Simulated assay, not measured.
Amino acid sequence: MDELGELTADLVSIPSHEDETAAGDAIEAWLRAETEADVERGDAGNVLAWKNRDADGESLAFVGHHDVVPPDDSQVADGEYVVEERDGRLYGRGAADMKGAVAACMLAFRDSTPAGEVAFASFAGEEVGGTGARAAIDDGFAPDYAVVAEGSTNYSKAGVTDVVVAHRGRRGSTLTAEGSAAHASEPDAGENAVYRACDAVDVVRDLDFPEVDVLGHRVHGSVAVTGIEGGSAWNVVPETCEVTVDERTVPGERAALERVEDIDGVSWTVDQDLPPMACDDGDFADRVLDAARESQDGDPEQVTKPHATDAGWLAQAGTTCVVYGASEPGEAHTADESVSLGVLDRCYRTYRALADDWR
């Protein structure tokens, strides 16, 4: 393997599903040894580095994360992650999501010679709601522009890495219906919480899905009831019932879930709200697309992505974002997770070209 493959393999081999510290240590140590950048390690476990910090003009950041979801049993041996190379791909937990792209960002950051301010960031806690990104933003991390290196490969067609200009967010909610218990032989003596919950489900079923245009691309939201639980015994009118709702949000629009509270005894609680992302600068999106085209034989396009990423948190804080990275649909979080070494090189060349031209 070349340097990029070896660095990816090194990062993938470090367990980081329960504690990202060791992976963050490795990234920090590499940056300090291989670059003359201004390197910081935040309390949240983030690793940040800058070239030409505080230079005049606008700043550009390359952003990834070094935490992963729990591995499949087949991806662990003797307490360590298994890493294998075969057929031009590197296999292991986190190879696609997203230590391979982090490695590509690290090397491009090291090798580039920008005239303007360029940053690298690898966040902790992306897989648990973006805790690292939010901590970095709270601590003042505020690049003008960012390329978030999550997956964008094979979105428009096979064999290309596309530029994502928008992605959906996720809002997870609980609808709680309250009633009053009674013996089931006298149902009118109580208030059936399941019936109230079913009325709320009907409201959700009839909601319009939000849609929005971003740089000429249509982004579609969705809302779905994903669970219902209520009742304590077969002969008792239930006094409580909970309904879970998964909503995929779009930039600037939300489904009107608050309407469920028009039903007596029903309340609505938001449990998780991962923001969507919309690139607000078409010139920047075109600039990244031009670099992507120069770095590959295929014809990449500007596309949208169904999954939330840390780009949502950055965009919400005012950073103009796109997503561009090696992971392909269906690769992340799987028992046979892998990343193409050739696509990683493509990403490295795109990141390097962007950084070298930044001024």
Rank of each mutant, 00 (worst) to 15 (best):
Y195P: 00
L289N: 09
C105S: 15
Q272L: 15
D78T: 06
D206W: 02
E242W: 00
C347M: 12
N154T: 10
Y348R: 14
G252R: 12
T131L: 14
D97T: 10
E331M: 13
V219H: 03
G57A: 08
L60Q: 07
W234T: 12
A124E: 06
V83G: 06
A135Q: 11
W234F: 13
V219N: 01
N192K: 04
D264L: 02
V118L: 05
G298Q: 01
E239D: 15
S232C: 02
E36M: 08
A255L: 06
D162Q: 11
H333M: 10
V260P: 01
R218Y: 00
D264I: 01
T161C: 14
S295K: 05
A33Y: 03
T21M: 05
D286V: 09
R86T: 13
Q316N: 12
S338F: 12
T249P: 05
V148G: 02
D2R: 10
A133L: 10
A96T: 06
Q302A: 09
G79V: 12
D67T: 13
T350N: 08
A182L: 09
V219L: 15
W30C: 11
R89N: 13
V303Q: 06
V12C: 10
H220M: 08
V250H: 05
Q272I: 13
Q75T: 13
D138S: 15
T240K: 13
V204G: 06
H167Y: 11
R293A: 13
L60V: 11
V243A: 05
R218W: 00
L314W: 03
M98F: 08
W358F: 11
A285D: 03
G330V: 10
L314N: 03
V102L: 10
D78W: 03
H220E: 15
G140M: 05
E126V: 13
A285E: 00
D310R: 02
D188F: 14
A315Q: 14
T226F: 08
D72C: 12
T350P: 05
A355Q: 05
P238T: 09
S173Y: 03
R110M: 12
A315E: 09
V164E: 02
A256K: 12
D356N: 14
E3H: 12
F141T: 01
G151I: 10
L7K: 02
A115K: 12
V147P: 02
V164T: 14
L48N: 01
C241R: 00
V219C: 07
C105F: 06
R349K: 13
S13L: 09
D199I: 03
A200P: 02
T269Q: 15
G318D: 08
I228K: 05
T35F: 08
T161W: 03
V165Q: 04
T269D: 15
K99E: 06
N192Q: 09
N52A: 14
D297T: 15
W30H: 08
S152G: 12
V83A: 10
D54V: 04
L7Q: 03
S16I: 11
P70V: 13
C279N: 14
L289S: 10
V164S: 01
V76C: 06
G57P: 02
E84G: 07
I27T: 10
A124H: 09
E40P: 00
D199F: 00
N154F: 09
M106S: 02
V128W: 05
G231F: 11
G45L: 00
V323N: 04
D280W: 01
Y324H: 15
G342C: 01
S173G: 02
P238K: 05
S122D: 07
